[in-house]
Design a protein around this nucleic acid. Structure first.
Lengths: 163, 163
DNA sequence: CCTAACCTTGACGTGCGCGTTAGACTCTGG
DNA sequence: CCAGAGTCTAACGCGCACGTCAAGGTTAGG
């Protein structure tokens, strides 16, 4: 919880760049985890200060938060998540790397691939949603049953008190 | 995929008891995993044949299936799951171990505890449900965008073909 | 009674997702 | 220019959830 020094002025643009410690503080993951994600290809290698310090963008922070949610809340493996973020990158790839007049068939192939991956993801999510809703139904049924038993106990207690 | 010998006649009752290999086949987990779950308290120690072979009931099979779903689909840890199955057991405890005329306050306490645990589980599930629905929305938005881009490509191709 | 299939309990190995430590380098304020 | 907070890479360690032998005991069929 140390008050951290603000990051130095960015190389040229006036965007708010963050050093690894700040990103760690904001996202709740450790610096080790950030470097690890980079190693594993979950985060693109961030820009660096001249001395070698990593400089993260706000986009990076959001990416980290999404990764964490995918992992802890939804139980995806980092391999799964890597596939997902790669599929996401296709978007930027398509509109940045390839110029408007680039090979159309190539762009089409990339889009098809992205669509396919995304549809698989939706399918996985639907599976999980179904399982969760099933579980929730079971649990709520149990809760109702507990309530019923509790009432029975109340009645018994009342009878006992009256005797 | 070997055709397995059917389990021997059960000790006394005519219920269909299964040996560990059959349970493994039916549930898709390994024998090691079944023993491991037993070690960790996720499965109650099953009855045994005289020679020491484990004999599982149909209930056990269902329990294993639930554990697997909780783990692989929903990403709970075995520790989480243990808490859940223990909460589940309260039910049988309450109506089997304790006789109807047992201490009411004790039964009430157990019920309260079970209710509490179950409510926490529902809360966790709601969190996950929300996260999943959020993700699904994002993904479907992306799919729509891909479709749009694909159409643009189609139009460009048409224009190119006409020239 | 013998054999093949099945099971038993250890005990060590493995992949994942980081934690931790070490030793050196960098950056900022005074 | 120096101190101290912050960061770097490299490398070893760890807990979880099993996998994988190893060395034997059990069961059912012929």
């Amino acid at each position: 919880m140390s008050t951290r020094r603000p990051a130095a002025d960015p190389p040229s643009e006036a965007q708010a760049y963050l050093q690894i410690g700040e990103v760690a503080d904001r996202t709740g993951v450790t610096q080790r985890t950030l470097r690890f994600y980079e190693e594993k290809g979950l985060l693109k290698p961030p820009s660096r200060l001249d001395g070698g310090f990593r400089l993260y963008s706000e986009d990076d922070v959001q990416r980290v938060e999404r990764i964490k949610r995918l992992q802890t809340l939804l139980g995806f493996t980092l391999a799964d998540i890597k596939e997902m973020v790669e599929a996401e990158e296709i978007k930027t790839q398509i509109r940045a790397e390839y110029r408007v007049d680039a090979e159309i068939s190539e762009r089409r192939a990339k889009l098809a691939r992205a669509t396919e991956v995304t549809e698989r993801q939706v399918a996985m999510i639907d599976q999980k949603l179904a399982a969760l809703q099933d579980m929730k139904a079971h649990l709520e049924q149990k809760l109702a049953q507990y309530q019923g038993w509790m009432q029975q106990l109340d009645e018994k207690a009342a009878v006992g008190a009256r005797q």
